[in-house]
Design a protein around this nucleic acid. Structure first.
Lengths: 214, 214
DNA sequence: GTCTATATCTCGATAGAC
DNA sequence: GTCTATCGAGATATAGAC
């Protein structure tokens, strides 16, 4: 249900796992520099000395947590996309799957956003390492869009801009969740707000890509 | 051109203004807890003692910077919207104006996002105070959408969800700018990428709202 | 592996000379 | 108003008993 599912390291012990989850949560909310080792220890239900025993330093803890989280985040992208007979179904399934992933992994998303706000230097390091090891970033949705354009199911659009727009729409309302909940009290039931949003987003996006004349 | 334009306080001295701008930049990237007073002093070209002389404490500095920045951010919303004969023109002008504002005020946007990631408690305080003083949050774009629906220019949509979608699309690619620039090297010229994005966004959104049959 | 105690350093904040 | 020097709290990290 939450960020702690599908362990990043199969060989993590229970304690390491508790530390990892706690660190993800605190780093996600406060950023690397704003996070306190004491807060992580408290959230993990252990004491500070254990953090250093298992992960040596704050830098190393952040690096490890960020690396795993980034890979999980990128993998979710591919996992949300299942090819279907029509692009309409493909897009609907992607929005459904991707929004579900973010809903169940808000801390993962927050950590990614926080790293971007801070400038993305750690992100850059990891991305470079990933590329060197041959793991290309997934352009799988963009390819589906190109196909759909070729087959005339949607109008000619720039695939990369379109992917970015879909991602933005699926993600941002989670980023701004506190604001959304304050401005839009009707969303006091967040779960049903998220479901309504999926519908709205699919309609807006699919119609926006439709080839019908304008 | 940048976040430092249109002074938040007409009665700020030059030094106060330099501190304000420096604090905005550092808080925006690192968050309240991650920011260092020394880093703010360096960016402002003064020493730490001056920070406390003018703003007493870090808490108070953050509170003041956040308050002004939030009001500017909310005001930009109304300022980007100019009523036009058709909703098509209104939407085009809004996207143009709002994206321009974010492009020229990236730190402002980052501070808002950072506060949301951290939970939004300071944001909540300020919003509550604003409401008590009678300044309602601007629902001005939502009203334009309602009108356009009534007049049949666009299909029946939920105005609040639609506003949220437009905002997301205009904002998020700035939030994720480091990732976008790494993943999409074609955007090495950020300025022209932003311009292309405005076009793409207007097309996608306006067509997505079109009443034509599906 | 786990905890307490502590070393070491950094940060926010102030005192006081100019 | 501006700077240097410094205090004291709080942070990361380690030592060492169990």
């Amino acid at each position: 249900m939450s960020d702690s599912d599908s362990p990043p390291h199969a060989d993590y012990s229970e304690t390491e796992r508790a530390i990892f989850d706690a660190a993800l949560e605190v780093f996600a909310r406060k950023g690397k520099d704003g996070a306190r080792m004491q807060a992580i220890a408290d959230a993990a239900g252990i004491n500070k000395a254990m953090l250093h025993y298992y992960f040596r330093s704050k830098d190393q803890l952040y690096d490890e947590v960020f690396g795993f989280t980034m890979r999980r985040f990128m993998a979710s992208f591919g996992a949300s996309l299942q090819e279907a007979p029509t692009f309409e179904e493909t897009l609907r399934a992607f929005i459904e799957g991707y929004v579900d992933f973010i809903r169940d992994n808000e801390h993962t998303m927050r950590l990614m956003v926080n790293e971007n706000l801070a400038g993305g230097s750690v992100l850059g390091d990891h991305l470079r390492r990933l590329k060197e090891s041959g793991a290309a970033p997934p352009r799988i949705l963009a390819e589906q869009i190109e196909q759909a354009v070729d087959q005339g199911e949607i109008r000619p659009v720039d695939p990369d801009h379109t992917v970015l727009s879909v991602i933005s729409a699926c993600l941002f309302f989670f980023v701004a969740r506190p604001t959304v909940e304050m401005m839009h009290p009707a969303s006091d039931d967040w779960a049903s707000f998220v479901e309504a949003r999926k519908e709205h987003l699919f309609d807006l996006m699919y119609r926006g890509l439709s080839p019908r004349e304008g």
